[in-house]
Design a protein around this nucleic acid. Structure first.
Lengths: 345, 345
DNA sequence: TCAAATGATGATACCGGTTACATCTCATCT
DNA sequence: AGATGAGATGTAACCGGTATCATCATTTGA
């Protein structure tokens, strides 16, 4: 590997001149510059950027903690991050944490050991461990799933309002028994969406029925399983609102397997508006989130912090959009014909 | 940021001793080690790994060039890479190239500028530009989409055999007019799958009909569009084989929109076995690929190269599996019962 | 008892850039 | 002409580790 000293020797100048010729060409004379560039060419010089990063103390790397990259929504978020980072000359170090806090912590250490300048967390944890006493702003941004008492900059959706909006849509269609398939237990995201759901019920004077809440984990399988549970209830729901699209797609399948029609017998709604949502049968009513924008905003915020342009930790709230498709429709007129028992496959 | 010299001073030893106490504890006496560790604790010393990487010339970073991370299949591959890399102490630098060769080249430069040790390419390009004369092994592995005359180590599927296998399945079901929805034009992947399709046709004595080939780009939309074209043919196909599952899902929707039933009127098959394939209506017959294994194998191969354990560029071929679900079924009794076609099963 | 071997530790060069400061050359001004 | 300053270039410190070699103390062996 040729280095700057080899170039300097060949060009007959000092290393400082070579460095200047490449970094601040205005400071060197035209003919020196020419000599240097020729020498660079001749020895095939490529600067060792590791040395630069070491010297400058800036790596221009950003660590991203993702629960699972193999998730359609996160994939879009990452895509947005990548774009924004590339534009600013940063690279992304991707960490698949599988939700494991030890793995998170080990990657977060990359910031402390100067392997990365900052960190983006897509989960509501603080991977640095307990918050330091001094509230000096750690180079971290929290996106998507956010804890409210967070002292970090965050990018989030108003999940409560979004869930309320969807629930209101269902109520307006005449539904009274609206089930909710939840995400992981302690997720603030689930908590907020649940709150929005309850807000809408309360506003419409509908009693909250614990039985209509079903656990899930954002997977297709868990949606499928949840639907089975819900349909087996003595009084099954006429609408099922899922906290993400994957679960909704699982629900759709299970509902159809029961011989019920969507939306005539049961309405189904999702959350995220992943690309597959529009290609469901029937196409899925859902909440669209600007996934790529989550990513780009988070990256830009982080870079602002790193470059000292941010005084206070901002909270950015991105807009959602209710996307109405064919999976939701008017509640069935029937109070209950006679199939309250719910037939199996 | 505290450094090793601060620790040395506090512990009353030399920097060399501190380094040894942390790296090769056996070389240091017990009480010195204790002093050092206490000092490390006291100043909160975290080694600057950037300095280590610079000194050692090894970054332990691997660049991954992905056409689009927001692709279900690639997301799984990346997940497998991440896992394998983490186990060996490497990090992944993710690059979303959008298929742009300039972007690819700019990321490939990270290897040449010592920001990464090696590179994994998921497309059949050589991002380093024209191959160097000396066939010294560049630290690169090519996975998924592979050019055959490649001098790099590769990890791939026998796409030709897989496509042949699927086509044979359709032929066995009595289909004679089998359409193929292709991937991007110049992709070797498309070329191989097409060849396998033709192999099966030839073996079964079915004439190849150019009209039944439809362009696509691996997106849901392109599948939808392709189906529209195919169904409008004077003699539409009775089976549609798509080069990936997304397109197949798009096809399924379009076919159903035409009022045709799957598989009674038209069979549809995909490729990849993404998670959504099993949740289609009807569930999709497809070819399963070990996506995560693609990733882990590629990473392990690359690390073998980097650590000099590999003499010749190996070609690894991973197994596929024909996954039969409900989207394929017997060919409909032909509108024209004339027996030009020949034998059924 | 002295030489040689062993073990523990220290001093410092080194990796490859950047950059503060020094030096040198001219041109300009009074 | 001498002083001043601008412009071009060189010298070397520096970033923070690692590793080589030197040094010194202690033990072992003949």
């Amino acid at each position: 590997m040729s280095n700057i000293r080899a170039v300097a020797e060949l060009a007959g100048v000092s290393v400082a001149t070579v460095s200047r010729a490449l970094q601040q060409p205005d400071l060197v004379s035209a003919k020196t510059k020419a000599k240097v560039l020729a020498a660079v060419e001749e020895v095939g010089y490529k600067p060792n950027l590791m040395a630069v990063k070491f010297r400058s103390g800036k790596t221009h790397n950003l660590v991203v903690l993702v629960p699972t990259v193999a998730n359609v929504f996160f994939a879009r978020v990452i895509s947005g991050m990548q774009q924004a980072a590339a534009e600013k000359g940063y690279s992304l170090l991707l960490a698949n944490t599988q939700g494991d806090q030890d793995i998170e912590a080990s990657y977060a250490k990359m910031v402390q050991t100067s392997q990365a300048d900052g960190l983006i967390q897509l989960r509501a944890h603080n991977p640095f461990g307990e918050t330091p006493d001094d509230d000096s702003m750690l180079p971290m941004v929290n996106a998507c799933e956010v804890l409210d008492q967070q002292q970090f900059p965050t990018v989030m959706l108003d999940n409560r309002a979004a869930a309320r909006s969807m629930t209101e849509h269902l109520i307006k269609l005449g539904h009274r028994r609206i089930a909710m398939v939840k995400g992981p237990q302690r997720s603030p995201l689930t908590r907020d969406r649940l709150a929005g759901y309850q807000d809408a019920l309360t506003a419409a004077g509908i009693a909250f029925d614990e039985q209509l809440l079903c656990p899930g984990n954002f997977s297709l399988q868990s949606g499928h399983k949840a639907a089975a549970t819900l349909l087996a209830l003595p009084q099954p729901p006429t609408a099922i609102f899922c906290e993400n699209d994957e679960m909704a797609i699982g629900v759709v399948q299970r509902v159809k397997q029961s011989g019920l029609r969507i939306p005539q017998d049961v309405s189904v709604a999702g959350f995220d508006d992943i690309s597959f949502a529009a290609y469901c049968d029937p196409p899925l009513t859902t909440i669209a989130q600007p996934a790529e924008e989550f990513g780009s905003t988070a990256v830009n915020l982080l870079i602002d912090i790193l470059q000292g342009r941010l005084k206070k930790a901002p909270k950015v709230i991105l807009p959602f959009e209710l996307v109405l498709r064919a999976s939701t429709g008017p509640a069935p007129a029937t109070v209950a014909p006679s199939l309250t028992g719910g037939q199996d496959d």
